[in-house]
Amino acid sequence: MKIVKFILCLLFGLMFINAGLDKFLHYMPMPALTADQTKLFAAFGEIGWLMPLVGTVEVIGGLLFIFPKTRALGAIVILPVMVGILLHNVYRTPSSPGITIAVVLFLINLWIIIDNEKKYKALVS
């Protein structure tokens, strides 16, 4: 079970590192967008600091998520981005295959948070 957790966390972390780096380097092709999606991404582009902030959080959270010693922190750091991804997929593109990926990634993140609940108790006591 330990090796399965490590592999899932490694893949999870690498996916977020890749997504974060793409926000700076723009090396992944953009899929065809609907008119609503084009408006949405144009609005995100108007807020000049938003995508660099999200990209930075994704890279840092992804790196922290990979290593067992910092995984609990990485899970909390990446949680707001993960919630945003999930909500975007639920409300904007519910019939796309992206919703399945978003749900699986959210469940992995939730699993790691629950698995590390002892580490968070000092924060809320």
Rank of each mutant, 00 (worst) to 15 (best):
L25F: 02
H26P: 00
Y27D: 07
Y27V: 14
Y27S: 07
M28A: 05
M28Y: 09
M28F: 09
P29N: 06
P29S: 07
P29H: 10
A32R: 14
A32I: 12
A32T: 13
A32S: 14
L33Q: 08
L33E: 11
T34D: 06
T34N: 05
A35H: 10
A35I: 05
D36H: 12
Q37P: 07
Q37A: 09
Q37S: 09
T38I: 14
L40T: 12
F41G: 02
F41M: 11
A42E: 14
A43C: 03
A43R: 12
A43K: 13
F44M: 13
F44V: 14
G45N: 13
G45M: 08
G45L: 11
G48E: 08
W49D: 04
W49A: 07
W49P: 00
L50H: 06
M51I: 03
M51N: 01
M51V: 01
L53S: 08
V54C: 08
T56S: 07
V57I: 10
V57K: 03
V57T: 12
V57R: 04
E58H: 05
G62M: 04
L63V: 08
L63T: 01
L63K: 05
L64W: 00
F65I: 03
F67R: 09
K69G: 12
K69A: 13
T70M: 10
A72V: 11
G74T: 01
I76H: 12
V77D: 01
I78D: 00
I78Q: 01
P80K: 02
P80S: 00
V81A: 02
V81T: 10
M82P: 06
V83N: 15
G84V: 09
L86I: 11
L87N: 11
H88K: 08
H88R: 03
V90Y: 05
Y91M: 15
Y91K: 15
R92W: 14
P94G: 02
S95T: 10
S96W: 01
P97V: 02
G98D: 03
G98P: 00
I99K: 11
T100N: 15
V104R: 14
L105V: 13
